[in-house]
Design a protein around this nucleic acid. Structure first.
Lengths: 148, 148
DNA sequence: ATTGAAAATGAAAATCATTATCATTAATAA
DNA sequence: TTATTAATGATAATGATTTTCATTTTCAAT
């Protein structure tokens, strides 16, 4: 068993067993740079784990998202997409979404400036609305190179 | 017929008839401060327009969104939500979404600072990725007062 | 090692939002 | 008035996600 997830008795009460399907799904999301849907993850893994069911993929994605290890996005194409949450600031990115073809471009420009502003906003909003900010989602949408 | 939408022969080729259902749906979205789903709009209007069908609601929302009069959002609760696009800067706002109960809070703090930064980002991204930015979507998610 | 309880799984069915079909109606132009 | 086109709504189809449930796996305590 490799990787930083070696909890013997679960973690934070989310689950108690770190099983093969869970490992496989998380590892896939850690490696890929894509923003994969449940179906895509299922198709991709089913080749190596023929026993894997789509239901388990959905359940595991929900589990990992609730744990805060991955993030769920809705880009408006009818299916949720998931992304491994990197903790290092250097890998922090936001999205550019083509409203025509659905292509998603990650960009990392300005994230420092953004982050500074975001931090300020978060602090204010937390106080003003008594809201515990857990994360943010910034995206630009429009037409990509091929669609404009 | 009241309001700023009096086109006799359609507008920009999007449609040719400004009908009752279309008027009703747009007017509802103009008046409400909620972020309504298609079903909610349908339920709300069906009382006054018993003949109205859910299909027409979906079609009209799609039409208005393509025209740029309203904006479609996916907050991750499985149904799209729509908002009238105000053009005045003073009404520009972003969203605070509770990941527990789904409540959406509009906030207007920092929008000037945000807008400045956003403008800068947009310009750079347009050049770098040859991407025509049409809009942005900024949201914070976490736990609201009642759910934390 | 054996066993029993709890957790995890996958197939299939159910649900729910959205889209496509199609026959009917309304509006417009000739 | 009539012919044509646009718009509508009921219904069916689709597709993503959830629920149900019987079975299997794992872990802890014998």
């Amino acid at each position: 068993m490799a990787g930083p997830y070696k909890w013997k008795h679960g973690r934070q009460g989310f689950f108690s067993r770190w099983t093969e399907p869970r490992k496989a799904i998380l590892n896939l999301l850690r490696r890929t740079s894509k923003h994969m849907s449940a179906k895509e993850i299922y198709t991709s893994l089913h080749r190596y784990y023929p026993g894997l069911g789509l239901t388990t993929v959905y359940r595991t994605l929900d589990l990992l998202a609730r744990m805060g290890i991955i993030q769920k996005f809705s880009f408006g194409d009818g299916q949720a997409r998931y992304e491994f949450k990197s903790n290092s600031k250097t890998e922090h990115h936001h999205h550019l979404v083509c409203s025509q073809c659905g292509k998603i471009i990650d960009y990392t420009e300005f994230t420092e400036e953004e982050l500074k502003l975001i931090q300020k906003i978060e602090n204010t909003l937390e106080k003003k609305y008594d809201f515990e900010v857990q994360g943010h989602n910034i995206e630009f949408f429009g037409l990509c190179k091929d669609c404009r």
